[in-house]
């Protein structure tokens, strides 16, 4: 069974089990879906587990995102399962379009995240989670051509998140810090590693202010390694997320992804929709 069939089968199963869906978190607190399929912002995985499940509930979410920058576009669709707000399992499929070369690079990402400690709203210390993202290119031709050593790889990350109620003149303030151990080139779309390059620790951060219960405005930063000598640069974005209820969220962002495979100043729009069951 291919990915799309699996996805729609999951949707149908869980849509028919409506009472199954967890609603036990506060609005907006699970975050949205990041480009590798984990719960997070747009670029950075956060410590929260996907969906509204509390410690006695399950949740299933599906999402699709599109990033459109100067010379490329990236489409991602995926799904996450939250088990008792302890474990998050996710799967995402990325399609990276390179119009100049009339090429599409596809990558699948299977990931897991475990909540080690806390609750972003209530615990005195930040919520802490450990995650792994296993990425595999469908066709590694381009990756090998630009000098990557591998066509699949696994990132490991540790994330800390906290929401401070009323902290900024009465507005709720959120922050997340993630440290990732990775040798992925441009998320893995250009393979893993390079000549004389090994895995390294990278830092990622997000912060946001909730202008209301439904709307959060924030920024993200993601450090990148430059294994291929193609001038890979750190990523950043400014985002606005709208969470009108516990069933859907919509995120829009302005991306600055720097240089990608020699093409400089890759800026553009990002749009993402997550549905929660």
């Amino acid at each position: 069974m291919n990915w799309h069939n699996t996805f729609f089968a999951l949707l149908i199963v869980f849509y028919s089990l409506d009472s199954f869906a967890g609603q036990g978190k506060l609005l907006g607190t699970p975050g949205v879906s990041q480009v590798e399929g984990s719960a997070g912002g747009g670029l950075v995985p956060w410590a929260q587990l996907a969906g509204y499940a509390s410690d006695e509930e399950f949740a299933v979410n599906g999402f699709c995102s599109r990033a459109d920058v100067s010379d490329y576009s990236l489409d991602v669709c995926g799904a996450q399962v939250n088990v008792l707000d302890r474990v998050e399992l996710s799967y995402a499929q990325q399609r990276f379009e390179v119009p100049a070369l009339n090429t599409t690079i596809e990558q699948s990402i299977t990931a897991a995240k475990v909540r080690l400690y806390g609750d972003i709203v209530y615990s005195s210390w930040p919520q802490l989670s450990l995650g792994a993202q296993h990425k595999s290119l469908d066709d590694g031709t381009v990756a090998t051509l630009v000098g990557a050593q591998e066509t699949s790889g696994t990132d490991i990350y540790l994330a800390a998140s906290k929401l401070h109620l009323g902290a900024l003149a009465g507005y709720n303030v959120f922050w997340n810090l993630t440290t990732r151990y990775s040798d992925a080139n441009q998320l893995g779309l250009l393979g893993f590693g390079g000549e004389n390059a090994s895995k390294e620790l990278l830092f990622e951060g997000s912060t946001a202010i909730f202008l209301s219960r439904e709307i959060a405005l924030g920024v993200e930063y993601r450090q990148k390694s430059n294994n291929l000598g193609l001038g890979e640069q750190n990523w950043q974005d400014i985002f606005v997320a709208w969470m009108p209820n516990k069933y859907v969220s919509i995120t829009a962002a302005w991306l600055d992804l720097g240089s990608i495979a020699g093409a400089k100043d890759q800026t553009g729009w990002y749009l993402s929709v997550t549905g929660y069951w």
């Binding site: 967890g22 609603q23 036990g24 509390s54 410690d55 707000d85």
Partner: peptide, 8 residues
């Protein structure tokens, strides 16, 4: 009281 009902 569960976590979910507290948030409710």
């Amino acid at each position: 009281i569960t976590e979910a009902d507290f948030n409710r």
